[in-house]
Amino acid sequence: MVSVDTSPQAPPPRGRSGRWRPLLRGLGEALITLGLVVLLFVFYEVQVTSWFSARQQADATERLRGQWREVSPDEQAPPPVPGRGFARLHIPSLGPDFPFTVLEGTDQDTLAAGPGHYGGTALPGQRGNFALAGHRSGRMAPFGDLDRLGSCDAVVVETATDWYVYRVLPLRGEAADWDPETAPERCAGVAPIGGPYRDVFGRTIVEPERREVIDPVPGVPRGTVPEQWRSRLITLTTCHPRFSAEKRMIVHGVLTKRYPKVAERPDLRPPELGG
């Protein structure tokens, strides 16, 4: 026969330490709750904002398509209206999240719906600098993978009337010994521009107050370079590092091709997009 010898249970400690117990327990529960709230905030920031943005982006796209149906490619496109979509941005090397509808303006509400165009900068295809901002994390993160863009990658902008193919400029390390002769075929039209553009590279990290990167000639005071000497650039800005507002990542590209849309053939797409 086996007898289990159980020692008598020790009575719960009473006295001075017992009084602190409910307080400590309450504090512990409050800290755990706080931790869960912070985790929930991360989920909100990365995921929930994207759900809201997806709906706004879809609305903007819908509205833009309706507008484009009414504009023949042979006419002049109407000027962009703040907060509304006016172009489509395709970046084939960044995968299936693209294209995005680009809206006019860079205020918080506009950027929640998709990439936004800095007001007052050039329009697609114009001389100067077509400058866009987009979120790096959360809100669908349209520019989340901008760090994966390399030189010569295509950035295609579709308007009511045209397709504009920009390509990322040589990166800082490549510019010095860039040889257009030996560069891959897809790099046609891409080379360090030189002159007032000698410090303009494909991808850089800058302080947030470096607003001159979206000037018509980046980093050169306005009015120095006459309009007819300016290149046709595109500039994408987003925050860096991811989730932070400490610095900005800047990608510069140059216009290499333009395909006018054909009214009778709306299905035509540029070869850069597999058309």
Partner: peptide
């Protein structure tokens, strides 16, 4: 509370 936090501002100042 989100606009008060220094997160993910993609624009230049």
């Amino acid at each position: 509370v989100e606009p008060m936090l220094p997160f993910d501002d993609p624009t230049l100042e």
